[in-house]
Amino acid sequence: MASGVKPRVKVPKTASAGDTVTIKTLISHKMESGQRKDDDGNIIPRSIINRFTADFNGQNVIDVTLEPAISTNPYFQFEAIVPESGEFQFTWYDDDGDVYEETKKIEVS
C-alpha cells in the first residue's frame, strides 16, 4: 500500500552534545494482519510494515521487527544520544517492498 502512507517524526531541533533526546515516530499504515477475512470468507492477505530503523549519522539507534500485532498507524517512542550535529534517518520497510524514509536534522552545541 504505497498510497496514503505518511510518516511523522518528532525530534528536538537542538540539543547539547551527549544529551539524551526523546524521539517519537508515527506512520499511517493499515497493518493488515493476515488474520482477517472479507465478507466472502476469504483471508485478506497480510500487508504490514515489518521493520523500522532509526540511525544518526550512520550509526544505529534502534532496529525494530514488527509483527501483525502492531496497531494500525504504527507508533514508536525511544531515546537517542546525540554526540554531534547531524541527521537522523528513519526508515520503514513494507511487506510489498516499498520503503518509506524521513530525515530530521538536529543542531548540537
Binding site: 539524551t20 533526546v21 494482519s33 488474520q35 540511525d55 544518526f56 550509526q59 544505529n60 539507534v61 534502534i62 532496529d63 525494530v64 521487527t65 514488527l66 509483527e67 501483525p68 500485532a69 502492531i70 496497531s71 504504527p74 507508533y75 514508536f76 517512542q77 525511544f78 531515546e79 537517542a80 544520544i81 546525540v82 554526540p83
Partner: peptide
Amino acid sequence: YADGNPVPNVATFKFGPLAASRSASTRIRL
C-alpha cells in the same frame, strides 16, 4: 509476546550504539 493472540510475536527492539536507554514504547493489538 502476547500469549492470547493467534500469532504470539509482537515486536523485537534491537538497541544500537546510539540508543540512550534500552527502552521503547509502542501500541499493540490484543
